[in-house]
Design a protein around this nucleic acid. Structure first.
Lengths: 215, 215
DNA sequence: TATAAATTCAGGGAAAACCCTGAATTTTTT
DNA sequence: AAAAAATTCAGGGTTTTCCCTGAATTTATA
């Protein structure tokens, strides 16, 4: 028997889920919560396998609830429920330990499949959700492609010096470390500024990291 | 008719795919390539809708091929084929414009579904692949929590100044921009160095980016 | 083998960054 | 209301960075 609790501030939605799940012989709805703190309380005092957790909860939002429950009660399984199919929310929930993410327009069959899958120790994400994640992963391409723009070649030695600059070494220190003159290091620094089109060390570091020049 | 080319260095695998696709009335295998440069050549001289592109290609690997083809021939659709279900490879291909990613142990039905889906303008990722991506997104939770370690609070004003430092503004410029004294900016810089445990601006920028202090 | 690119070094100077001490005022938190 | 944190400013000094010109040597490339 899978024992679960439903957490959502819309009573009607909670009841809807409840009536859907009532028909399932191996699923038992042990409780209903309408705000964040209640969920934490309820889980503390009852043996619960799975929480169907809405993201938009009053007082303490679903993301926070998820984080706290995983911290204190590591073996609890959380399925996030949300109206919004947004990459930021999905990743946020995943990062806080949710085992599944389904949308509110999910049908009965998929809901039950999600519950059973997560209960068996696996993770469950609806097709729409995974598609959203994949799409957002792809969109990042255009961003990074734009920032790349035009980058001249940075020589081996320059990279070496750039690396040390990023590691907070000063020019005298770099000179000593590489057994070359202080003036040579300064030359390399100037070349780097020119090549990467930076005004100072701060820009050098930012541009180097943004464009993954080292690696 | 979907016109495609198969690119993989293992002839036997290529022939296997070919014979599978031969039975499909609406799919036509227009060519077979066994290394990176050949693919680029072939696509240049033939009207191709889709490329089934292996990641491990000789001379020029699949990731590079993908990047170049998308740059020159934006409307071509690439489905990556790989033996390995690794998050790094999947994201790498996605970032370079692949529209699908399937594993080499994928069955006939799924392969054809992938081709048709991608040809229709959508993206296709097999269940295994999406699962891998979702899992790796979840694993990052622990990582980011560790790197955070202990970071003191950076105040609102300090963040403002830190942002400008990262944008390559100098102290006099920041002072003018914020209508405050040069000495005040210097104080904030010192506080930032102390709080973030950095030795200089370069470190400031690196630490700020690494720990996502702005955002 | 020419040519180009990378690496090395130097002097001298201006600007910026960094360090220290010290302090007043405002805002936030307890 | 009191304490703590944030923001503001200053003097004076050292170090580092940045800029310019100029140049020799080594290495890679056409």
């Amino acid at each position: 028997m899978i024992e679960l609790v439903i957490a959502d501030d819309h009573a009607m939605f909670v009841d809807g889920l409840d009536s859907i799940l009532k028909d399932e012989v191996n699923i038992s709805v042990k409780g209903k919560c309408y705000d964040g703190p209640s969920v934490i309380d309820f889980v503390k005092n009852n043996k619960i396998d799975i929480i169907l957790l809405d993201i938009n909860l009053p007082e303490l939002n679903g993301i926070e609830v998820c984080k706290r429950l995983i911290e204190t009660n590591g073996d609890i399984k959380i399925i996030a429920i949300s109206m919004f199919n947004e990459e930021s929310m999905v990743t946020e929930m995943l990062n806080n330990g949710a085992k599944g993410y389904i949308l509110k327009n999910t049908g009965k069959d998929e809901l039950i499949k999600a519950i059973e899958t997560v209960h068996s120790g696996q993770t469950y994400f609806s097709k729409d959700v995974t598609q959203t994640i994949m799409n957002s992963l792809m969109k990042r391409r255009k961003k990074s492609a734009k920032t790349n723009a035009f980058l001249p070649k940075v020589s081996r030695r320059e990279k070496e010096i750039l690396k040390l600059i990023i590691e907070e070494y000063t020019t005298p220190e770099i000179a000593e470390k590489l057994f070359i003159s202080l003036k040579t290091v300064e030359t390399h620094r100037s070349s780097l500024l020119a090549k990467l089109n930076a005004r100072n060390s701060a820009g050098l570091v930012r541009i180097a990291i943004e464009n993954k020049i080292l690696d």
